[in-house]
Amino acid sequence: MADRMRIAIAAGGTAGHVNPALALAECLRDRGHEVRFFGEERRLEGRLVPEAGFDFFPVNVTGFDRQHPWTLVTALGHLAHEERRIARAFRAEPALKPDVAIGFGAYVELPLLRAAKRLKIPIALHEQNSVPGLANKQSARDAALIAIGHPSVADVFRRAGAREGVIHFTGNPVRRQVLEGSRVRGRTALAVPEDGTLLVVFGGSLGAHHLNTRMASLKRDLLAIPGLHVLHATGADDLEATREALALTPTEAARYRVQGYIDDMGDVLAAADLVLSRAGASSIAEIAALAVPAVLVPYPFATADHQTTNAHTLVDAGAAVMFADADIDSPAFADELLGLLRDPARRARMREASAGLGQAQAAERLADELECLV
């Protein structure tokens, strides 16, 4: 193990940024390193980071809204102020000064990384998505390490000025609570027998209305499959409308569970025989880490269609099939979904292909790279 290090992590805004950062932090803590997060108290990181037991340094920044150019002045003012404040804190308290600072792509990373550059502290980046965000592209020139979750983004960072040899593919870290998911525990909680088949449907934290309506139209065909159970997470905003569309009888509800979101994703994925979902970076990482066969429907309005690129990570490996959102009302989609649910041998081949991607080791690979910087 490397000597004990101090690592500063900036991640914020969404679960897609915060959860991979927490997965890395858990791995680093297990190796005996000291980890401190930098983020906004009012955002998701302000709750999740303290809950996970990590020190939290509050940062106050505002993003730039392209539709309102005058917000740039306020954004730059906050950025400069927070950069100076962090740098002063590092100078005043040597125990706070990190050996390396890593950003996970959100705007909140900029004051930390710029303060680190000012004090000649090595800078690292992690990019979860197949289309890098502006903050990471802005920081690429100064990074001693750029860890990526998708090989396709390497060229983007080279064009952004990344130095030769700093880009490394690590995959997207997945939190231990997901990696340690239990099939037995998940099936017990969902009342799914071991010889049953479990389909898990979710559309990300906000749900996916088109997926929800299509599932309602397929209810009879799905429940006609002997032994099939469905867990359908609709997203909080679409829960009541989906319940009305499904109109489940008590008998149907015994095999078709509808809820707004999934809390225990590790146990649920471990229990699943097939997943139907969108293709956000975190969802892809978790599905691959648990090696669950998947039918992926990328969100059609994602920036630069990056969810389609995300999905190809699994599709090209033979671990998933993909349908465009516009095509899920077709008979071909129904035939493929229902066919997979009836074909355990094909699902077993997909599961083996997914396991071969090694996604479960992403946090360890990223921790290795950070240790090499110091």
Rank of each mutant, 00 (worst) to 15 (best):
E51H: 13
T71S: 14
L218C: 11
T197I: 15
D329M: 10
L112W: 01
I328F: 05
N212G: 12
L76W: 14
R346Q: 11
E34C: 04
A8G: 15
F54S: 09
P293D: 07
P331L: 10
G280W: 08
F54E: 00
L24V: 14
T197L: 11
R36N: 05
R118H: 09
Q259I: 01
G63N: 10
D273M: 09
D305V: 01
R183K: 15
E336C: 14
A345C: 03
L231W: 02
G149C: 08
L96S: 04
L222E: 02
R66Y: 04
M1G: 14
G186V: 00
A362M: 13
N172M: 09
A116K: 12
I102H: 13
L72I: 11
L274E: 04
A270W: 12
R158C: 12
A216Q: 08
T251Y: 00
P193M: 09
D142S: 15
V258M: 10
A285T: 09
P331H: 09
F57P: 02
P98R: 02
A106G: 15
A80G: 01
A154I: 02
A2H: 10
R91D: 03
A10D: 04
Q67P: 00
A294I: 03
I328N: 00
R255M: 11
S152K: 10
A116H: 03
R351F: 00
R31E: 13
G32E: 10
R4V: 13
T62H: 09
D264I: 01
